[in-house]
Amino acid sequence: MQVLLGGGLLASAVSFLYPVWRYLVPPVATDLGGDSVVAAKVGELKANSGKIFRFGSRPGLLVRTADGEYRAMSAICTHLNCTVQYRSDVREVWCACHNGFYDLNGRNIAGPPPRPLESYAVHVNGDDVVVSRRRGT
């Protein structure tokens, strides 16, 4: 009886403490994401190029214009939810699915997209290019 009780108590304690111990080990990925996210490092993007980054659970598009300015917007095409990309040859944002075009402010300028892309605010913080959702506009 004592073996049963003692062994049981010990085993259950182990089964309670094991998850706790594993919980205490910090995971490798430490970036949480959020309303603002580090989309790129300064210098990562050449002028006149773009990159897709993860913004919460959706893709975002960070563009560095030919003048070196940063622009960011949602990368989900307003037509049929494809992921858009930056076209350095025409210097516009392009959706490959149905040839929709947006300007660098996210406005739909050609092709089927019915609405502009949501544009995000960008600021450079030290070495990070930080993109955040615009509030209350």
């Binding site: 998850p19 706790v20 594993r22 919980y23 995971p27 949480l32 994401g33």
Partner: peptide, 19 residues
């Protein structure tokens, strides 16, 4: 800014965080 994401992080990234 971070509350939701940190709970999501606990639920997905941290081992046994969901538990």
């Amino acid at each position: 800014n971070e509350a939701f994401e940190s709970v999501q992080y606990i639920m997905t990234q941290v081992q046994f965080g969901w538990l």
